[in-house]
Simulated scan of single mutants.
Amino acid sequence: MTETASTASPAAVHRRDRLPGKALLGLFLSGFVGILTECLPAGLLPEMAHTLHTSAALTGQTVTLYAAATAIAAIPLSRATSKWPRKNVLQLALGIVAVTNVLTAVSSDYALTLAIRFVSGLGTGLIWPLLGGYAARLAPEGRQGRAIAIALAGTPIGLAGGVPVGTWMSSLGGWQLAFYASAAVTALTMAWALATLPNLPGQSVHERFKVSQALVIPGLRTILFALAAYMIAHNILYTYISEFLTYVDMESQTGWVLFAFGVTSVLSVLVVGTHIDRHLRKLVVGSTVVFAISMLVLAVLSGVPALVYVAVAAWGFAFGSSPSLFIGAVINATREAADVAQTITITVFSSSIALGGLIGGLLIADLGTASITWASLVLLVAAGIAVIGGKKNAFPKGA
């Protein structure tokens, strides 16, 4: 006999309401390897520059080009593969990342390495637009926000833990070992996703929204503006955190400062994930305000090392779940157009990474290192105004 809702046992109801942990772990790991692959050179610049016979500044463009490729690819590749089964797209993207990590490790030519990194960024351009929507479709009703938070948690954890671990591995066996290890983790992620993720169907042609249609949905442009200001502010300082710590005479404590950022980023994922479905607006507002206060402290009181630690820890806590918060807001605002809206969001996200690094470098060169905290603060004030003011459609009350 078919079990109905009225006769279902408590155990059966619990199973239906339970998040699919193994499948969400596969999405989490996919996001982790994407951001790890993107940012890994940031901790390996001197060693890579030596092998590639170029400067550290030029080697740093392997990060910028990767982010640019992801931004360029997110919309066209997502639309080109929108009718494909979701797991097939994810496996293709992870395969590209795994192979290009190996090729990066064996390359000793700068131009070739840039080309490989561009292709790798195209792979990640397929991964990130998938994660939020895939997680939401896997989750039971009313728990989509938590599922999205889990799936996207790989991004801050990759930033917080993956890059320092890769840097440590390079000290054991050269920078190439870090890329081989990243390729191995990506291959394991492919195996896990293959075993645990259901192969959800893509969208048929008549179901797809155009980018122009999605952009006129009330609230989406406000979310995208707030996201861009928030992420550029983050990347202006995070990209040059070593330079900033040298400026405040704390260069010997860089590892510990990044550790503080990483710990609170992970804590943010755990705390926010339990409340995101009921208090999205409050969490976005709180994240933006805490981030802004952190930048103000770093701008004004950076001469006090203890306050630098406190400000960086607060920054990590604010930033840790920000991808989940903004993607969740996009999904809530766009509903039927959520898939294409997420590709637009990933384009903005990746462009902001590239822009943050570029703007930060220009500010340091022209106005000095102190200017990057003030620039970040101005951007966060703009983001805060958009978030707080977007209470009708973008970040509605009660969301």
Rank of each mutant, 00 (worst) to 15 (best):
T254N: 09
S252C: 09
F209A: 12
A191M: 12
E207G: 03
L258N: 06
E243V: 15
F225S: 09
S242C: 02
L197R: 06
G273C: 02
I236K: 06
V266D: 01
V257K: 02
H234Q: 13
V248H: 06
L267A: 14
F225C: 07
V211C: 08
Q203V: 00
Y240G: 05
I217V: 15
P198L: 09
N235Y: 15
T239R: 08
E243A: 14
A214R: 05
F261A: 01
I241N: 00
A229V: 11
P218R: 06
F244H: 04
T239S: 15
A191D: 04
Q203E: 14
L267T: 04
T264Q: 02
V205P: 05
F259E: 01
A226R: 06
L220G: 04
Y240N: 04
Q253M: 14
G255S: 12
T274R: 15
V263H: 01
I236Y: 08
T196M: 06
T246E: 04
V263I: 15
V272N: 05
R208E: 09
D249Q: 10
I241H: 03
I223K: 08
P198H: 11
A226N: 09
V269F: 13
L227H: 05
T189V: 07
Q203S: 03
Y238E: 02
F225R: 01
T254C: 01
R221A: 14
P201E: 10
L194E: 02
M250V: 07
V257D: 00
P201D: 06
N235R: 09
L194T: 14
H234Y: 14
S265L: 06
M250P: 12
G255L: 12
W192T: 06
A193K: 11
V263R: 07
I217L: 09
A229C: 15
Q253S: 14
L245E: 07
R208N: 10
W256N: 13
Q253N: 13
S252R: 11
R208G: 05
L197G: 01
G255Y: 06
I217T: 14
N235S: 10
L197Y: 11
M231H: 00
V269H: 05
Q253A: 14
L194D: 09
A233Y: 07
G255N: 13
T222Y: 11
M250W: 07
L237H: 02
S252H: 13
D249E: 15
F209M: 12
H275F: 03
Y240D: 05
A226Y: 08
V269T: 10
M231W: 05
V266R: 00
L237E: 00
Q253Y: 07
A214C: 12
W256R: 04
P198V: 04
I223D: 15
N199Q: 07
A228T: 12
F209Q: 11
A233N: 10
S268N: 07
H234F: 13
Y240F: 13
A193T: 14
M250T: 08
S252F: 00
V269P: 01
A187I: 13
I232E: 06
F225W: 15
F225T: 13
V205I: 06
G202S: 08
A195P: 06
S268W: 10
V263Q: 07
W256F: 06
R208Q: 11
V266I: 13
E207Y: 03
S265R: 02
M231Y: 06
Q213Y: 03
L224S: 02
E243H: 12
S242F: 01
M231C: 09
I236N: 09
V185H: 01
S204T: 14
I236V: 14
T264M: 07
G219L: 04
V216D: 03
I232P: 09
I236L: 14
I232W: 05
